[in-house]
Every structure is written in C-alpha cells, then in structure tokens.
C-alpha cells in the first residue's frame, strides 16, 4: 500500500503537475520564467557554487538519462571491470563537484546580506532537496556498488514501467531504504520544477545556435 502510494502514485502526481503547471505558467505568467540570477548582488561565491553545481549535476543527470534510455549499452560497457571503474569514478567525481557546489550555494544564501534579500523560502526548500538528492546519491554509489549496473537492471525497468502506464514497483521495493529515498527526493525535485526557479532549465536557450544575430520586429503588416 505504502509502496504503491510512494512509488506509483507520487511519481505520477509529481510528473503530471510538473508538466501541466509548467505549461500553464509559461502561457499565463511568462514574466515569472527566469533563472532569477543573483550574480549581480554577489559574484565570487556564486562562481564556485554555480559552476561546480551545474557542471557536476548536468553530467550526473546526463548519465542517469543515458542509463534510462540505453540500459543495455551501460551493461555492455560495464562488462569489463576497468570500464566499470572508469564510469563509476567519473560519475562519483561529478557528483562530488555538484555536492561541493550546492553546499557553497547554500552557505552563500545564508551568509551574504544582499543575497539573503532575494532568497525566498522555496529557494531554500529547493536547495535542501537538491542537497539531499546529491548526498543520498553519493552515499548509495559508495555503499551499494555498482550503481551503474543495477540502475540498468532495476531502476530503468521500473521507470519504464511508469512510462508505459503499467507500473511495477516490485523492481525497486526490495532495494535498501537509502536508495528508495533517493528515488523519492528525485520525484520531489520534479514536483518542485514548476513552482520554483527550476523552470529555468526547461527554457535553456538552445535556439541561439540557429537564430540570426540581429532581431528586428516590424509592427506593420508585410514585414517580418
């Protein structure tokens, strides 16, 4: 019962809210979409915090996505121990970067007078959840080896079962609690996306790569 609620109900609710609210927010309150950068108020601690956090988390996140979409490829790669160690060590070091980054960001939020002014309660909730997400991930990676392999055999099938609308939580219910909380806080992050500044990574401006350098808008008919 509890398992069904936590690992079937909750993820669906989180994902549904994330999609619906993000779209509604984008159409009804586009002004609220922003990275809410605070670099203008404080730049040095942000350099360390933001750079380490983002580079770390983006690599880790890509790793998770890769294992989700191509679990067999990961298993094939991990067939040789040396390659397995290489993957695990890379992943772990990226996670450590993110950890240092998010800790720096949290310290910055509490110590800089000006940054405090633009810190909302939700900012702190988000940073705390992210801190938990990264540290639980590191803990799991160290204690329950080898994550990259069992992600492909357990987590990926479970997540796919959610995607295919035939949820099979039994793939992960036997896993240790620490691992399960890592899942839960992951869903919590998804839930937080539409309500916090996390919307910023939904609107990463990749169209910059192909747009023309100058933007000219004509009000009258007949012109671009």
């Amino acid at each position: 019962m509890l398992n069904n609620f936590l690992f079937v109900g909750f993820p669906y609710v989180a994902l549904a809210l994330a999609i619906v609210v993000s779209i509604l927010r984008f159409t009804w309150r586009p002004f609220s979409y922003s990275s809410l950068s605070s670099q203008f108020l404080e730049t040095e601690a942000l350099f360390w915090g933001s750079s380490l956090w983002h580079w770390g988390i983006l690599w880790v996140l890509s790793g998770h996505l890769f294992a989700f979409f191509l679990p067999e490829a990961i298993l094939a790669w991990n067939a040789r121990p040396l390659r397995l160690y290489l993957l695990e060590i890379t992943g772990l070091s990226m996670a450590l970067l993110a950890l240092v980054g998010v800790v720096a960001l949290i310290i910055r939020r509490f110590t800089d007078k000006r940054v405090k002014v633009v810190t909302s309660p939700l900012d702190l909730v988000l940073l705390t959840v992210l801190l938990y997400q990264v540290s639980s991930g590191i803990d799991v990676a160290i204690r329950y080896r080898w994550g990259s392999s069992w992600f492909s055999t357990n987590a990926a099938p479970y997540l796919w079962s959610l995607v295919k609308c035939s949820p099979r939580p039994e793939f992960i219910t036997p896993l240790p609690w620490m691992v399960k909380t890592h899942f839960l806080s992951g869903f919590l992050v998804i839930l937080l996306i539409p309500f916090t500044r996390l919307v910023h990574f939904l609107v990463v401006p990749i169209h910059y790569f192909w747009r023309r350098p100058q933007v000219v808008i004509w009000n009258r008919r007949g012109r671009r």
């Binding site: 002004f31 979409y33 990275s35 910023h200 401006p205 933007v215």
Partner: peptide, 24 residues
C-alpha cells in the same frame, strides 16, 4: 533568448520582459 529586439519602424531597442530569462 532573443528577448531583445530592434523595432523595424523606428529602430528603438527594447527588452521583451516576458521573454527575458535572466541569462544576463
């Protein structure tokens, strides 16, 4: 984001506040 644009008619340069995402 392409939030800043030049108006074709008079060349005034403006920031669309709805499109700006604070990338600075």
């Amino acid at each position: 984001s392409g939030a800043i644009y030049k108006r074709g008619e008079d060349g005034i340069v403006l920031v669309n506040q709805n499109v700006c995402k604070g990338w600075r």
